[in-house]
Simulated scan of single mutants.
Amino acid sequence: MTTPAVSIVLPCYNSAPYLQETLDSLSAQTFTDFECLAIDDGCTDQTLAILQAHAFRDPRFQIITRENRGLIATLNEGIAAARGAWLARMDADDLAEPERLQIQLATLEQTGADVCGTWVQFFGERSGIWQTPLDDASIKLQLLFNVAFAHPSVVARTSLLREVPYDAGAVHAEDYALWCALATRGAHFVNVAQPLLRYRCHAGQITQTKRDALRQTAQRIRAAYALVLLPAALQARAVQFAEYAEPGRTLLPDDFAAYADMLLAIHQAHPVGAAVLAEAWIEAWQRTQPAAQTLPVVGRLRAALPFALERSGFYRKQWIKHRLGQGVLQALQRLTGKGSR
């Protein structure tokens, strides 16, 4: 049996409603030298029957079936079983564009990167394109704030993933932990500026309980990674930085000012990541309690880290909100009746 160039790892847990479309999108890849390791993680629906029928038609698909062990154990099992030099991720409800593997492998060869993701097209209950940072430096900087890869879009060196497998202690944030661990080891990253994966959005993908656990785990990962990437003068404040950067946290105006100073210091150390840092301060300003005292801070940030043109409308709305301040906004809400809803 010849060794395939790519091993696709496809975890499946009660995936019957959308699985056949996913399998068909993989069989239709223009790059054909792959194996797909479809792992039945203790499914109780028709997932296994769908996998078996598809494997009968396309022998590149191999099925591993056993009791439920969870996503992280399933991913690491797939990495251990992979025969290809490259390992591609895929979820059982998403769709790969026909050129996905071909374009990603060409990008990996051209750049010498170890990990390659792509932009993602949302469909189903959400639309739009998730545009992740493209170059190695920007991706590593983005990891200070949040994930920089769409997990099911990634192709990576199998040998590297065997050296640094998914962390069993990072439940619900296993991909974020992996990217930070690989970045710390000096892996070279790249993203393709094309939506080569269609990401299906549907109800029940992540429960509130899982979301809370993800936030706690991500906060721990973010603080540890900050110790590695922050400038030396900020490393003693890594935990505080991670708290300010947490997307679900509301900032006070003084918090925002302190965070702004941190972002500007990071820019001095990593000037090529200006676009990532610009998005970071815009996002933080949005979750800061409205106050006019943020406006001079924003002036400094805007001068050093200008935002993308498409953010202009958002910026104007935020400026008005902060110019009015919390008290005026609350009074307007009471007058319009929105505050009581």
Rank of each mutant, 00 (worst) to 15 (best):
G124V: 04
R66E: 15
G299M: 02
T22C: 14
N14V: 09
P11A: 10
N146D: 14
A226S: 11
R69G: 07
P247C: 13
Y176L: 14
Q29V: 01
D114Q: 11
Q216E: 14
F307V: 09
S340R: 10
D175M: 10
R215K: 11
A170L: 04
R334E: 13
V171N: 10
L229R: 15
H322T: 12
Y13K: 15
A304R: 01
L178F: 10
A80I: 04
S312Y: 14
A213C: 03
E279R: 12
S340D: 13
A203L: 13
R237Q: 15
C180V: 09
A218H: 01
A92P: 02
A257R: 09
P306Q: 08
Q20A: 15
W285N: 06
E99G: 01
A88S: 10
A53Y: 01
E77Q: 15
H270A: 14
R83Q: 03
E174N: 10
P17E: 06
S159W: 02
P165G: 09
A233T: 12
I39E: 02
F122T: 00
L75V: 07
R185C: 09
Y176C: 01
E21Y: 04
A275D: 07
P290C: 09
F145N: 00
L51N: 14
P306D: 11
T2Q: 14
L309I: 08
L87T: 15
A170T: 03
T32L: 09
A181N: 04
P4R: 06
E163Q: 15
K317D: 12
L10Q: 03
E174F: 08
R69D: 03
S138K: 02
A156D: 06
A173G: 12
E21T: 14
R198I: 08
D41A: 03
P17I: 04
H54Y: 10
Q20I: 09
Q102F: 10
V155C: 05
H151R: 11
A5K: 11
Y199M: 15
P253G: 14
L234K: 06
L324I: 04
E77R: 11
A96W: 11
D254I: 11
E21F: 01
L10R: 03
S7L: 00
G124M: 11
T22H: 07
A284D: 10
T22Q: 07
R200S: 07
T250H: 08
R162F: 14
A88G: 06
